[in-house]
Amino acid sequence: MHRPTAFTAPGRFWRGNLHTHSTRSDGVLLPEEVCRRYRAEGYDFLALTDHFVGAYDYPIVDTQPYRTEDFTTILGAELHSGAMANGELWHILAVGLPTDFAPSHSPDFHPVEGQETGAELAARAVAAGAFVAVAHPQWSGLTLADARGITAAHAVEIYNHG
């Protein structure tokens, strides 16, 4: 039995990426160059989601200057706070964040006392108007109990390439 893929079905489809980094955190290209390359490859949209931790000065990169008539950008970040069952910080994509989103108390990639939980951070991002996704759950070591504890997420990233 042959099942049609989503991209052969009728309708308008947009090519985009909701999770990528620049030199504002651990990426290798400047934000402008990241946007230029995605636009040159025919992408319709890009969310530059650098790591939102103190070590990188909690960046929400303003990519609006790189928009064109056929390429848009969405402001966002990869948020980190609260320990998962394995002791690692949550990795939460927040796309559509306002530029004044208040930082979590996440100086780096290690849990600290008094830090908001991943669930609290996700809920705060949703309340600020963001689309929230749990980032790379396999790579992060997400457990089923972790997954059930974060009810504010809209999605789970199912593919990540590094």
Rank of each mutant, 00 (worst) to 15 (best):
M1R: 14
R3T: 00
P4G: 04
A6M: 09
P10H: 00
G11W: 04
L18F: 14
H19R: 10
H21K: 03
S22M: 07
V28E: 15
L29K: 01
L30V: 05
E33F: 13
C35T: 11
R37F: 11
R39H: 10
R39N: 07
Y43T: 06
D44H: 15
L46T: 11
A47W: 07
A47D: 00
L48N: 01
L48Y: 15
T49L: 10
D50K: 06
H51E: 02
H51F: 09
G54V: 11
G54H: 03
G54Q: 09
A55C: 06
Y56M: 00
Y58W: 15
I60A: 00
V61R: 01
D62L: 12
T63L: 06
T63Y: 01
Q64F: 14
P65H: 08
Y66I: 13
R67F: 01
T68F: 00
T68I: 06
T68Y: 02
F71I: 15
F71D: 08
T73G: 05
G76A: 04
A77L: 06
A77W: 14
A77G: 03
H80A: 07
S81G: 13
S81D: 07
G82T: 00
G82D: 14
M84C: 06
A85V: 13
L89M: 08
L89N: 10
W90D: 12
L93M: 11
V95T: 05
P98H: 12
F101C: 09
F101P: 09
P103N: 07
P103L: 05
S106G: 03
D108Y: 04
H110G: 05
E113V: 12
E113W: 11
E113Q: 12
G114I: 04
G114Q: 13
E116M: 15
G118Q: 14
A119L: 04
E120K: 11
E120S: 12
L121K: 10
L121P: 06
A122W: 09
A125Q: 07
A125D: 05
V126G: 03
V126F: 04
A127H: 08
A127D: 14
G129E: 03
G129I: 11
F131K: 09
V132Y: 01
A133F: 07
W139L: 03
W139C: 00
G141P: 02
L142D: 00
L142C: 11
T143D: 02
L144P: 02
L144E: 14
R148H: 11
G149W: 14
I150N: 10
I150M: 15
T151M: 05
A153Q: 04
H154A: 15
H154N: 15
E157K: 01
Y159K: 01
N160P: 02
